[in-house]
Design a protein around this nucleic acid. Structure first.
Lengths: 142, 142
DNA sequence: TGACACCCTGAAGCTACTATAGGGTCAACA
DNA sequence: TGTTGACCCTATAGTAGCTTCAGGGTGTCA
């Protein structure tokens, strides 16, 4: 099958397919005499796997690890579970961060109930009065 | 004050300061004869405001809107509240998305309790069996 | 005079793609 | 036979919000 069919089978665009090939997630397929990419069912499975991982918000790096593990049938799946558990932990952590953020935003929002001049807007004052802290870099991609 | 002092006052790097200038969030300051940037207290306030907004996970676009509103003291703060409320809504929505994701990941995780060969790993099978859906693009930056 | 901390510009790198430009291939139809 | 249209190709640049790097200049102290 050609790249357009493959893309449709995995519900993504042809650009994404070519991108995954360039990134080494999808192996380069055979070519027709006219230099068109030619794919088989193995490619469909692999691409769908990648897209499903992305739908679960995994990073390219996590997917790369999963694929490498899946490619070695001799292995046990302990390492797979580990990658998965780490991903779940990332999601949990991001939820906690956002819940905290929501609290902070809510209490700032309550400082401006009525419409007033911007100079005396409680929200703008609340922002200005925050303690500037060095930005803690995110350890997740979510 | 020079760029290094300004950066320290707002707990960010000098590169970030120069970046904000290039993006138009921070107005270009005067220069010394040696072409060094020279800042005053107004710059400190504005930079701290920007960094505090970023600490609240606002996008550059949201910050740009807030600054434009704050720069017009004649205005009422209704528009400010609107930007803020929209941001809160973004956070809420992202939390809901991640909660859903967490549910999905949890039920997949339960399909592989014991260590086994990767071929029969419940997690890998669960991923492979997912319905590939076209990716819905995120309407928030979070 | 040298060492060192600080400043300057411009360009490239990060993630996961998307979009664009400028071209080639192939089957069908007039 | 020519041409239209759907598809394919490569290479490059753009997105957000910075960070890092290369290759220089400036200012102060010993």
């Amino acid at each position: 099958m050609k790249i357009g069919e493959l893309a449709q089978a995995a519900q993504c665009t042809v650009e994404t397919v070519r991108y995954y090939e360039k990134e080494g997630l999808l192996p380069p397929p055979a070519r027709t005499p006219a230099n068109f990419r030619q794919y088989g069912t193995g490619h469909v499975e692999r691409l769908r796997f990648i897209r499903n991982c992305r739908a679960l918000d995994m990073s390219q790096e996590e997917i790369r690890r999963l694929l490498a593990l899946a490619d070695q049938p001799a292995l046990g799946c302990g390492a797979v579970n580990e990658v998965f558990d780490q991903h779940i932990a990332h999601v949990d952590e991001r939820i906690r961060e956002l819940e905290q953020l929501k609290q902070a935003l809510g209490s700032m929002r309550r400082r401006c109930q009525s419409e007033q001049a911007v100079d005396s807007c409680g929200i703008l004052h609340a922002i200005a009065e925050m303690e500037s802290e060095p930005r803690h870099d995110r350890h997740t991609h979510l």
